[in-house]
Design a protein around this nucleic acid. Structure first.
Lengths: 340, 340
DNA sequence: ATAGTTTATGCTATCGTTTGCGCAATATAT
DNA sequence: ATATATTGCGCAAACGATAGCATAAACTAT
C-alpha cells in the first residue's frame, strides 16, 4: 500500500504476532521456530519490506559503517586500499564511508568529527603529511571506537598498524642496483619526518654499507617527490656535475621526472643510468623503458586492515592488543635497471 | 562522566531546559534566543557532546548519506568522480558511501539493496557493463529516492544523467588526425552496445564522411579494449596487411597496447602511425611518445552529479524534472599524433 | 486597558528496531 | 505424578533526536 513503507510491525500485524518476534525471526534468532521464521520471511517479501539499518543502528549501537580516511581517493595506492577494505567489509555486511583529508590537517580533523557523528563502528586512516597533532585520533580511541592506521602511521597513538616493510624494500632495491653494477646511487627522499621515507633512506644506506660503498650526502636529494621535483633534482645533479650511475627514488613520480630529464639530455637508460622508483604506480609499466619499482601491496593492505578490525571486534577481551602488521613489499624489476 | 555519552538530554538537564530546546538551539532554530543558544553550545562543549546522526536520521528521515556505485574504485576515472562528488557533498554535510559493482550484475543488485537498507538520501551510479535489467534501479526510483546516472547510463530509466559528449570528442579526435594528414584511420571500439562506444564510433564515422574519406569496415576493430586487446587488434591489422596511418582507440589502454606493438615492430610513432586514445588515463602523459587523448572531466562530472542532486533536493516541486547534462570533453593533443 | 502578536520554551509522540524479562505451554527428569 | 527445563513468543522500555502543538510571558496596537 504505502510506498515501500512496510516495517516489522506491518509484518507482525499480518501474521498476528509481535514485532519482537518478527525482529528475531529476521535475525535468525534460535528462540524462534522454523515455521514462524518461514512465514515471516515470506510475508516480508510479500510486503516488500526493506530493513531500516538506521533504526537498527540506533537501537543496537552498531551502525555497520566503517570510515576510511585517506589523503585523496584518486590515487591508485589509496583507491586500491579502499578496494581491499571493501572486499572484506561488504562481505560481512559493513559499508564503507570514504573521507578525504587532502593532506590538510583541518580537513582531517573535520573528517574524523563527521565520521564520529555518523557513528561509524571503526575508522581506518592514513595520516596526512602535515599532521603532527593527534588529538583527533586520540578522541576516537577515547570513545572506544577501533582505530587502525595503514601505511602512514605514528607511534604516538596506541593502535594497530598495517604497513609494508619500507626498509626492506629500499634495501632490496639498492642491493639490486648494486648487483647490476652501480656504485654511485642517487637517492630521492622526502624532507618530511614521515617514517616511511626515513625507513627507505635507512634501507638505502644500509645496503650501501653492507656492500662497502660510501654514503655520499651529495647523492641524496630531498624534495616533495612529485614529478616536477624529480626533474629539478636531476637537473641539479647534472648542473653540479655529480657523478652517478643510478637513481633510486622513493616515489615513482620523481623517478619519472628523472627519467624524462635524463632522456632529454641524451642519456641512455638503463645503459648509462639506471632508475628505480617506489610505489608501482600504474604508469611505471608503460614508460620507455618501464621503471623498476616496489609494489606496496595496496589491495592486500586494505584487506588486512579490515581483517584486523574484524578480528578485534570478535575478541572483545583483547581489544587492547595493538598489533603491527608488516606486509612484504614486492620488488618489480623492469628494464630501467637491467643490463641488456 | 560516562565516556563520551552525553546526549541533548544531559545538556538540557544541566541547563534546566528541555531537550527540544537544546535540539533547536544546536540547529540554530530562530525561535531560540541567542543567550540560550550560547549556553547550550557552551555546555555541549563542556560535556563533550557528540551529535548522533543516527538518531537524527531516524527521526528526521534524512540520513545525509549518499551512495555512489561504480564498477571499481581503483580506476582513475571513477576515483576522480568520487573525489568530485565528495568535494560538493562534504561541504553540505553529507557523507559518501562507496560501493563497487565489479562489473557484476549480481553485485550491483546487492549493492543497491544495501544502500537502500542504509537509507541513503540519494544514489549516484555508473551502470555495470553487463547490466541489462534495470529493476534494481527502478526500485530505487519507486521508493522515491533520487537516482542520478553518470557516464554509463541507460534510457530505460527516467533519471537525470551526467555524461560527456562522446560523439563530439570522437569527432574532434578524428578530425585532428585527418588534419595531421591521416586518411586511413583505424578505430578500436567495444563490442558492447554501451552508448558511449556507439557515440564515439558515430563521431569517428561522421568526421570521416565530412572530410570525404571512406568508412572502411576493415579499419574498425572490436574488442574489450584492455591493453592486451589493443595489442591483439594491432597484430591482427598487421597480419592482415591492412594499410593504416593512424589508430584512434576508444580506450587509452588499448591505445597503449597498439603503441607497444607498433614500437616493437619498428614503426616510428608518430611519423609512420599516429595514435590517439580516450580517457586521459594518467599514464598517457608518461609514455614515449605521450599519447593524444580525450579528458573525460571526471572531477567536474562528480561535482555536477552532486550538484544536480542537491538542486533537485531543494526544488521538491520539480523532482520529476529529469535532466541530462552533457559535459564538454577536452582533446589533449600530445606527441603521438603530431607532425614534428 | 484590553485584545492580539510575537517570542521563547515546554510537552509529548514518534522514527523502526532491539532486547531483557516474563510467562505460558510443552518436554524431560525423578 | 510432581518438579524442573526448555521452547516460543509477547510486553514494554529503550536508543537519541525532532517537530507539531500548546503555553506563558512580554510586547504592540488601538
Amino acid at each position: 500500500m504505502k510506498k515501500g513503507k512496510a516495517t516489522i510491525h506491518d509484518i507482525a500485524d499480518k501474521l498476528n504476532i509481535t514485532a519482537s518476534t518478527v525482529s528475531r525471526a529476521l535475525n535468525d534468532n534460535p528462540r524462534i521456530s522454523e515455521s514462524t521464521k518461514k512465514q515471516v520471511i515470506k510475508m516480508a517479501k510479500q510486503l516488500n519490506y526493506q530493513p531500516n539499518h538506521i533504526a537498527s543502528a540506533l537501537r543496537s549501537g552498531k551502525s555497520k559503517l566503517i570510515g576510511v580516511v585517506v589523503p585523496t581517493v584518486n590515487r591508485n595506492f589509496f583507491s586500491s586500499i579502499i578496494r581491499g577494505v571493501e572486499e572484506i567489509a561488504n562481505g560481512l555486511g559493513y559499508r564503507v564511508i570514504i573521507s578525504q583529508s587532502y593532506e590538510d590537517y583541518e580537513k582531517e580533523v573535520e573528517t574524523i568529527e563527521a565520521l564520529l557523528n555518523a557513528r561509524v563502528d571503526g575508522i581506518f586512516a592514513s595520516i596526512g603529511k602535515n599532521t603532527s597533532n593527534f588529538e583527533h585520533f586520540q578522541k576516537v580511541l577515547d570513545k572506544n571506537i577501533p582505530l587502525i592506521l595503514f601505511d602512514r602511521f605514528t607511534n604516538e597513538l596506541e593502535v594497530s598498524q598495517i604497513v609494508i616493510d619500507d626498509y626492506q624494500a629500499a634495501y632490496q632495491v639498492t642491493k639490486h642496483l648494486i648487483t647490476q653494477g652501480c656504485s654511485r646511487i642517487v637517492h630521492f627522499t622526502s624532507a618530511k619526518k614521515i617514517s616511511i621515507y626515513k625507513d627507505r633512506l635507512r634501507g638505502y644506506e644500509d645496503a650501501l654499507r653492507d656492500h662497502n660503498l660510501p654514503i655520499d650526502p651529495l647523492l641524496i636529494e630531498e624534495s616533495n617527490m612529485q614529478l616536477e621535483d624529480g626533474r629539478i633534482c636531476t637537473e641539479n645533479l647534472l648542473k653540479k656535475a655529480v657523478q652517478f650511475d643510478a637513481i633510486f627514488s622513493s616515489s615513482d613520480y620523481a623517478a619519472m621526472g628523472a627519467l624524462q630529464v635524463l632522456k632529454e639530455k641524451g642519456f641512455k637508460i638503463p645503459q648509462e643510468v639506471k632508475i628505480a622508483g617506489f610505489g608501482n604506480e600504474p604508469f611505471t609499466s608503460f614508460t620507455d623503458p618501464p621503471i623498476t619499482t616496489v609494489d606496496q601491496k595496496a589491495i592486500p593492505m586494505g584487506r588486512v586492515t579490515a581483517e584486523t578490525f574484524f578480528a578485534t571486534l570478535n575478541n572483545e577481551k583483547t581489544d587492547e592488543t595493538q598489533q603491527k602488521t608488516v606486509l612484504k613489499p614486492e620488488l618489480i624489476i623492469r628494464q630501467s635497471t637491467q643490463n641488456k
